[in-house]
Design a protein around this nucleic acid. Structure first.
Lengths: 345, 345
DNA sequence: ATATTTAATACAAACGTGTGCAAAGATAAA
DNA sequence: TTTATCTTTGCACACGTTTGTATTAAATAT
């Protein structure tokens, strides 16, 4: 015999059966009343609804889903939310979700493949209605996303994507825009342009590198330096990189930075060394610096159209959830990013 | 008669019963094998585990929870994640969760009471293991949190809290630190100090206002101006406020700002008007500006110890989940924030 | 009056899992 | 051989819902 000690706070949650018992009806009647089935008499419906309201009845989603009902929860997976690119998208998506009756649940991988995998498993286990993902830098293998498809959970990639998974994707024109700014710098007279980017395992950074290199080739520049930063994109890392670059010979005379945080690090050290921008060093960065207006000189940057990315991703996912788009379909939307010209080059 | 068209992609998820059927054992045996019950023969266990692995079996959490099992998902609710204060905490908590076997699911209220309510309902419906919350500015009523307690879901407040809900809370010393910086400004010779804060419905802003006012009273200053900003804390709003303040007579000679975004707005407009900092205007802000090091002059700010807030909140919640802290217990932890002295006053 | 339709409710099965208990099979002891 | 102990597996129910069908009660028609 086993004695069970009930925690004094432990409240059994009120169920449809409890209501049925109290009101002397069958629980199926309660269920129908709550779901506004016409088959239940006005009078009893009122009774049931009132009781439910008074006792704060909440549907048990676990039971509901077990019955095979779909739900309204969307998972959003991002590498991190410290960077404005992602936090802007999270914000926008939260609002879109709310306006359309979905609840957005945000997961952060911190750029870790392992955590990403675990999150995907959790999503499957809990049977989310859909997933919107931008993958971690660590992610070389995409099996876990294939798993999602196996379990028939709609999936949309944005920005950082897995090429080999057939599913809707939203990207920006990384190749073209990077080629464009590289050309812009060349035409401005810069000769030694460094391209600062992430691991080329990720489409975003690979495309940017290719865009940079293609233009360097076009203009037959003799200086070519596409630097892949494997560390996290932090201000500190930006400082380190700049110091190393500046000690090199020949020194670069322009930098294209893939990340705002790196850019800030560069600016800090440049200032401390008295490096003049844009005279000694030209700079263009992906993404807006929050305090851009009080930085002298203001930095030319690439507006990544976060809002549009969020909008498109959301629309695609909802269509998948509604079966208006098939599960294996591979739609690719390209968002055109824009150069915002300031005075840093 | 109703014909049912099965979506070609629609895969029934593999269950414990499927495995049982394929391997000619009872599903209870499969269940035991998967949970490493010693009662199942080594040989069959191997068979089952292999089959499960090969077919990517994932436990159905809905079924599991329906059986009354607890889970490992923690909900984190924040007003927004655009502000570094919150995004830092989200980051830290995600890592803590991961390290301790929990999955953190982040919800953003966008400062909206209604959305906050809905999120709480979702959390109850899905039966999360626990919740960590910083409330929205709109939130005047706290019934929804009482509901959480009713459903026996552990709850920890941090930073912005509901006073009347008895549950663990983690705050910073808003009153003391604001009093301290007010005194600091007074001693520096500033005579007309404006305090820029949020609605006093929220403890954080109320405490800060009280701290400011108490010190203004102590020193019998004749200028007193605690301004409650009801709009979102954005750079644009910061600009507007500064322009209004600067047109007033008498002009303020110092500003205490509750938000980094407001501060940036102020700095932008101050610069455009040629206002000298700290000579014409002193400034202190709550929270670090990401690009602080390249802003001239550097801004004195209050370090809110996000990391410690996250750590304490997490520990408290986990203790509640483990029943080491009772559900109604009202523990209050105060984190001591610190002034980081720079040259803006 | 009885037969027929309609409205309202009850019954039972199912979703996927875990678990106490019974049953069967195997091994050891008598 | 029988009996006792131990190991392994099967059975059945429960969790909270929904829903097709059966049942009852009420209303209408004959």
């Amino acid at each position: 015999m086993h004695t069970f000690v009930l925690n004094i706070n432990m409240q059994k949650r009120i169920t449809i059966k409890d209501i049925a018992f109290e009101l002397n009806v069958h629980h199926s009647t309660v269920s129908r009343a709550l779901r506004n089935d016409q088959r239940v008499k006005e009078e009893t419906r009122e009774l049931i609804l009132n009781y439910a309201r008074e006792h704060d009845y909440q549907t048990n989603m676990n039971a509901l889903q077990l019955r095979g009902k779909t739900n309204n929860t969307i998972a959003l997976i991002v590498p991190n939310i410290n960077h404005n690119f992602f936090s802007d998208i999270v914000s926008k998506l939260t609002n879109l979700g709310y306006a359309n009756g979905y609840v957005i649940s945000v997961f952060q991988t911190n750029e870790k493949y392992q955590l990403e995998r675990e999150i995907i498993n959790t999503i499957i286990k809990y049977n989310f209605a859909g997933v919107i993902v931008s993958i971690a830098k660590d992610t070389l293998q995409c099996d876990h996303f294939a798993l999602l498809k196996k379990y028939a959970i709609p999936l949309v990639f944005f920005d950082r994507i897995c090429e080999d998974i057939l599913t809707p994707k939203v990207k920006i024109n990384n190749f073209e825009i990077t080629a464009e700014i590289t050309e812009y710098l060349i035409k401005k007279g810069y000769k030694k342009i460094v391209h600062l980017t992430g691991t080329t395992n990720i489409n975003v950074f690979r495309d940017r590198q290719n865009g940079y290199e293609s233009m360097i080739r076009n203009y037959e520049m003799e200086y070519k330096n596409s630097l892949q930063v494997s560390d996290d994109f932090t201000v500190e890392v930006g400082k380190d990189i700049f110091m190393k670059l500046w000690r090199q010979s020949p020194r670069p005379d322009a930098i294209i930075s893939s990340s705002v945080h790196l850019t800030i690090g560069i600016l800090v050290e440049a200032r401390s060394l008295g490096v003049q921008i844009p005279k000694d060093l030209g700079i263009i960065t992906f993404g807006r610096i929050v305090s851009s207006e009080i930085i002298e000189p203001q930095i030319t940057f690439i507006d990544q159209q976060e809002s549009e990315i969020a909008q498109l991703s959301f629309e695609l996912l909802v269509k998948m959830i509604r079966h208006e788009i098939q599960l294996g379909e591979s739609i690719e939307k390209i968002v055109r990013s824009q150069i915002i010209y300031k005075s840093s080059c």
